[in-house]
Design a protein around this nucleic acid. Structure first.
Length: 705
DNA sequence: TAGCCTCGAGTTCA
DNA sequence: CTCGAGGCTA
């Protein structure tokens, strides 16, 4: 057992060790830290295996373990018999009876890149004397490992991994998992007794539901689906286990006998065939996603493919497993003390990491919304360095009890945007400072207001500098007036220099001054000049959208544009008039009405008109061949960007929507489609077409672009 | 009035 | 992409 104080110190040391590079460690340094490092690893073993509440990510644990292994291989005389490297960690909660596995449950050696995989392949080829190896490659499920024994076709016993030699008997809990057959006709394959390895998993969407429920009940959250699965299979009450929606995948036969004789490698020759057999016997297996690869190049390709699409897979996977497919070679290849030489794991870049919150700053958005943003000690997640993360609003901070100085678990999933999963409370020193929400706007100092029932504070001063800047950025952005060369950074720079204080100022920029600004040459100035000139001719709806009226996005802007001939006509609309338009209720109508009855705004509109911007719709309305049809895109298109495709569809009279619903007529499926495809299939009435078919539909008109 | 559907807004890094 | 909230419909 560890006291709170000890735990805190150990976590602190963890961070130190994580920043160490093996190259910087000499003999003296090694001697001085090695025992501490072992103690740190033992502590994390305890958090992970005993409490099922790890305080660091797997990736970080692997890093620590690797550091210890590296030091020990550099200075082998420092190895002690009780070093964590000398055994797979044990300590098991005593609730379940302990049982011995038929064959040890070893972990796999890890690889992190192409070079590691090629090394592995080279070793396998050397040891077997073969020129090219056939590999079976499958996703590495991130769940809780289990071992199942079937005797005379009956499910006899199921166990956790434990220390690899001895696990816990959780047969009763596993029996409630429906994807584990209680009986399977192994006898029809001439097998009396078999030991199977697998993984208990929770689907990502179910994991989310469980955590939502735990939040409501005030229970500690699970950091990820694996923790949830590991915690769930060891619940005392199988009835509770049944409620958790667990599933079990099996991926390896480690023992099979007939009349006391071993069948592996003799009768059961190929791993891929074993998986097929398990699949046919009614087990959940990676059968559909297992690929037999001839040679390491195919393996690497397949790993890459999965690294790209792993987020679309309903189960959490943290890498790929590569196994030599020919089981008769296993004997020749053998084992090291930790792992088989005939298999290796290829680990994807981690998407979770822990780091410290250094500070919290408050940003002012275009609508005046105040967003707290945590500045982090930079940390690598999924291949990029993350140094800041949004904390959204006060409720989020309160719910998670986030404080400055806290160590937090940060995740960067498929959506790319980092997110604070939880605070590692064990790491607290007592010096953490609560996050105080400002009473005044950090940009202009005016008092903030929080409308009843809303989650965010707002600065309501429309001339607040931060808001003005954001509005100009929005106006120039791609979806609005699309002024290339007037990026976020440029707007900020010009504002600071006093060149750009309002939207109309864009069209009054003095280019003689800009030429003298560092970073602007002849060419960039000319490009900017031209882009600004071109933006004067944008269609009316883009201008309306660019004005940044609250609740008026692209769609509502189009509604408004098509209701009038010219921008000024909107001045004459009463709230009631506006509410007659589709999808505009009283809230939206009021905002629009207020905007067009604000003197400052009217002056701006007048100025924009005088500066030569298009403020009217074209006279005649052209109808295209796609008139009235709604499109949605999913996946990447080969022909062009989505923007371009959207433009083409709209030019032909069609619409492009963001989400799949009954209104949609066509779903265009590109490469690696997302969840929209399933949704569309479920609705049924949507015509699902691929890119080729789509191109055919728009073909005749396409040359003009 | 509840629940569905859609739109708007916010969001990180390079 | 996701969440929250506005608008619409049963």
């Amino acid at each position: 057992m560890y006291s709170e104080e000890t735990q805190r110190k150990l976590i602190e040391k963890t961070r130190e060790f994580l920043n160490l590079d093996i190259k910087s460690i000499d003999r003296k340094k090694a001697e001085s830290i090695i025992e501490d490092l072992r103690e740190v690893i033992r502590f994390h073993d305890w958090r992970y295996y005993v409490l099922a509440q790890p305080v660091i990510s797997d990736y970080e644990y692997d890093k620590l373990f690797k550091l210890l292994k590296d030091i020990e291989s550099k200075y082998p005389d420092l190895i002690t018999p009780d070093s964590p490297t000398q055994r797979v960690p044990s300590e098991i909660t005593k609730v379940f009876p302990q049982v011995k596995h038929l064959t040890p449950m070893l972990s796999l050696d890890n690889s992190y890149n192409e070079a590691d995989l090629r090394d592995f392949d080279r070793r396998v080829r050397e040891l077997t004397g073969l020129e090219k190896i056939e590999y079976a490659v499958e996703p590495k499920f991130d769940g809780a490992g289990i071992s199942l024994i079937y005797e005379k076709d009956l499910f006899k016993r199921g166990a956790t991994r434990g220390d690899g030699e001895v696990g816990e008997d959780i047969t009763n809990n596993l029996k409630v998992i429906k994807s584990i057959p209680l009986s399977a006709k192994f006898s029809s394959y001439g097998i009396d007794k078999v030991e199977i390895r697998g993984e208990v998993l929770i689907r990502k969407d179910i994991f989310k539901r469980i955590n939502e429920q735990r939040l409501e009940e005030g229970l500690p959250l699970f950091a990820n689906p694996r923790n949830a699965a590991a915690g769930s299979i060891r619940l005392q009450d199988p009835k509770e286990v049944a409620k958790r929606g667990l599933e079990a995948f099996v991926y390896q036969i480690t023992y099979a006998e007939k009349d006391g004789k071993n069948l592996l490698g003799t009768v059961l020759k190929k791993h891929s065939d074993n998986i097929k057999m398990l699949h046919l016997l009614g087990f959940k297996t990676p059968y559909e996603v297992l690929k037999v690869c001839n040679g390491i190049d195919e393996v690497i390709d397949y790993c890459r493919e999965w690294e790209r699409k792993r987020d679309n897979y309903p189960y959490e996977i943290d890498g790929m497993v590569i196994k030599v497919n020919d089981i008769s070679l296993y004997e020749k290849l053998g084992f090291t003390s930790h792992h088989p030489r005939w298999a290796i794991a290829y680990k994807f870049k981690a998407r979770q990491a822990t780091t410290k919150i250094i500070d919290v700053v408050f940003q002012v958005g275009r609508t005046g919304a105040i967003t707290p943003v945590a500045k982090l000690q930079p940390v690598e997640i999924g291949g990029v360095i993350v140094s800041s993360v949004s904390l959204f609003n006060e409720d989020f901070i309160r719910e998670k009890d986030i404080r400055i100085g806290d160590t937090v678990l940060v995740e960067r999933a498929g959506d790319v945007i980092p997110y604070v999963v939880m605070v590692i409370k064990e790491a607290r020193t007592g010096n953490e400072k609560p996050i105080e929400f400002p009473k005044n706007c950090p940009s202009c100092g005016s008092p903030l207001v929080k409308p009843l029932g809303e989650a965010v504070y707002r600065c309501i001063n429309i001339n607040c500098p931060a808001q003005v800047i954001e509005r100009i950025i929005h106006f120039a952005s791609k979806d609005a007036m699309d002024i290339k060369g007037l990026s976020e950074a440029t707007v900020k720079k010009f504002y600071k220099l006093g060149l750009l204080k309002s939207i109309p100022d864009i069209y009054r920029l003095d280019f003689r001054i800009i030429k003298n600004i560092q970073g602007f040459g002849e060419k960039s100035v000319n490009n900017l000049k031209q882009a600004i000139e071109e933006s004067k001719n944008r269609p009316l709806y883009r201008l309306i959208y660019g004005l940044g009226i609250r609740y008026v996005g692209e769609v509502t802007a189009k509604t408004l544009a098509s209701a009038v001939n010219c921008l000024e006509d909107l001045k004459n609309f009463t709230i009631t008039d506006l509410m007659k338009l589709p999808d505009i209720g009283d809230k939206v109508a009021t905002e629009i009405y207020n905007f067009f009855h604000n003197e400052q705004n009217l002056k701006m509109i007048q100025q924009l008109k005088e500066l030569g911007l298009n403020v009217c719709n074209p006279k005649e309305e052209k109808k295209g061949k796609l008139a009235g049809l709604n499109f949605v895109f999913t996946g990447a298109l080969k022909c062009c960007s989505r923007e371009k495709a959207k433009e083409i569809v709209e030019s032909l009279g069609g619409n492009v929507l963001d989400t799949v619903s009954k209104k949609v007529h066509y779903l265009v499926v590109g490469e690696e489609p997302g969840s929209k495809l399933q949704k569309a299939q479920k609705i049924g009435t949507i015509k699902i077409i691929n890119e080729e078919e789509f191109l055919k539909m728009i073909e005749k008109k396409q040359e003009s672009f």
